[in-house]
Design a protein around this nucleic acid. Structure first.
Lengths: 126, 126
DNA sequence: TCAATCTATATGACACGTCATTCAATGACA
DNA sequence: TGTCATTGAATGACGTGTCATATAGATTGA
């Protein structure tokens, strides 16, 4: 039995979906076209750029994103392969890794961030 | 330069992401476990169930979901393979197809919808 | 100190979504 | 009516995410 509340819930859900997908797709295309990285790659880059402390961060990253641990690992693979990030072993826990932006990574991030924020504004702000 | 507005935008965006991912994952797991269909499959089923008219619908479906045309086509493949939906050719435009729920599809949908709405409520309604 | 257990990350198999392309049917217009 | 462009849908190659597992290092407790 479809109650009014049910319909409202479904509406709300579809609205979130649309908001999410349309925005994500727009950003992804733009970043891909201009900087040759996908949205997930940028978001990891963004998180790394945000972390001022040099704590061991692979783990911390996993807690700040809805991505799976293994997804994060593969995104970092690509970022590393692209020379934007580097993995460094952790002195106090040799299982852990912390990530650093390379110079190229820092440069790309600061350009891409402008684009990213602008598209967020265009898609969410309005 | 990270303005306050930028940070707010990023916050808003991450909140949407979390809301979307956490809810989607919860629903997906539940539907998978109890009814052996994924969230996308259910959403197509839901759209077909909603359509009272018998217009040619593959196309219409594509307009009501953020999924790609080809994604919809593959989801319908699976639904058809599972015996929940059937494709019928359209008399007035033989390129088009319209979809119908089978009896099994209707039955599964009405059970799964209850679960779906409940999880939406739990995750969004809060 | 040595097992047992736990934790951080990586990896391989697999599922699914996307893009580009294909194919058939339709429409438009000379 | 015959060509050319357009449209609805399906398909194959490919990239990326997920799950389950593997591996190496840490921790606990006897």
């Amino acid at each position: 039995m479809a109650t009014t509340q049910d319909r409202q819930l479904v509406e709300q859900w579809r609205s979130i979906q649309n908001s999410y997908f349309r925005t994500a797709a727009a950003i992804d295309r733009a970043l891909e076209a201009k900087f040759d990285i996908g949205l997930n790659e940028f978001e990891i880059l963004d998180l790394v750029a945000e972390s001022v402390d040099s704590a061991c961060r692979m783990k911390a990253l996993g807690e700040r994103t809805p991505m799976t641990q293994s997804a994060v690992s593969k995104v970092v693979d690509r970022l590393e392969k692209a020379g934007l990030v580097s993995r460094a072993t952790c002195a106090d826990d040799r299982r852990s890794l912390y990530l650093e932006l390379t110079d190229a990574g820092r440069a790309l991030h600061s350009d891409a961030a402008v684009e990213h924020r602008a598209l967020l504004k265009a898609n969410l702000g309005e």
